[in-house]
């Protein structure tokens, strides 16, 4: 069977195309089901708050550190690049706009994809493998409402907050490097940043972050719920959750940037 497939590239191509389309269809159904359950009771506020803690609060250190180093590196790069056409003074402005519009939300999304999508997929996958999902159903509790909705809502709300914190820390990182290593004036640095940034820059970044949060939790839950049997199945679900949410974040980032381009 395998040999035949190798010899017949067209069949292989067809099979993988059909597989991809089927996967897109399944994710679309899962998405529609999630959205329909968000609005209908019963609601589980206790689960939601617990997830807000796990996804939001506990991601602060990793998001903060990533943003700090990225802001610093960005300041150095822009200084070096800007020096080639005597534009060293644009460091504060470019760091601010780069962090707020692009790097803040994207890096937050990717770090949370690594930290949260994996843990959601592993947790729900293990629950599936050990029949805990079946047990939920027999206890008259809908797993979509009890597991998926709280996680998706919590991530969609937590990510913009995380991204905002990341933005601020990233700009601070750029500022630190700017005044200590590049001899930029501290007051001028802050004034340039504040004068240059517009509300639309910040809002567009936060909207992106919300979308990324939604993607991360949705992919974690989807792959967990569809996990295969045994440790290998859970492992694969975890990998798929991280990879698919990272790729979708990058794709969505381009589309959203295009959408916000004029503003």
């Amino acid at each position: 069977m395998k040999g035949a497939r190798l010899l017949d590239p067209l069949a292989g191509l067809g099979a993988s195309t059909l597989g991809l389309l089927a996967a897109i269809g399944r994710v679309a159904f899962y998405l529609a089901s999630t959205l329909s359950h968000v609005l209908r009771p019963p609601f589980y506020p206790r689960e939601f708050l617990a997830q807000l803690m796990v996804i939001g609060y506990f991601s602060l250190p990793v998001v903060g550190l990533t943003a700090l180093f990225t802001g610093g590196a960005l300041a150095l790069q822009i200084y070096v690049g800007g020096a080639r056409f005597n534009a060293e003074s644009v460091v504060p402005q470019i760091v601010a706009i780069g962090m707020v519009r692009e790097l803040g939300p994207v890096l937050t999304g990717l770090m949370v994809a690594g930290r949260v999508a994996s843990s959601i997929a592993a947790e729900i996958g293990t629950m599936k493998v050990t029949e805990q999902i079946d047990a939920l159903v027999t206890l008259s509790t809908n797993p979509m409402k009890y597991l998926t909705v709280p996680r998706v809502l919590a991530a969609t709300i937590a990510l913009p907050v995380l991204a905002a914190v990341g933005d601020a820390i990233g700009i601070f990182g750029g500022y630190l490097v700017g005044i200590t290593r590049l001899d930029l004036n501290a007051a001028t640095y802050l004034k340039n940043t504040a004068d240059f940034l517009e509300t639309a820059d910040v809002i567009s970044g936060l909207v992106k972050a919300a979308v990324f949060g939604f993607i991360v939790a949705l992919m974690g839950c989807y792959h967990g719920m569809n996990s295969g049997r045994g440790a290998q199945g859970v492992g694969r679900a975890t990998t798929n959750a991280v990879v698919s949410s990272s790729v979708l974040i990058m794709g969505a980032n381009y589309l959203l940037t295009q959408l916000f381009f004029a503003t």
């Binding site: 947790e123 050990t130 029949e131 805990q132 079946d134 047990a135």
Partner: peptide, 17 residues
């Protein structure tokens, strides 16, 4: 319907959280 049933699962299926 489900409220009329109780089930003991093979591995217990206790919620570990």
């Amino acid at each position: 319907f489900l409220a009329r049933f109780g089930m003991l699962f093979q591995g217990g299926a206790l919620f570990d959280s």
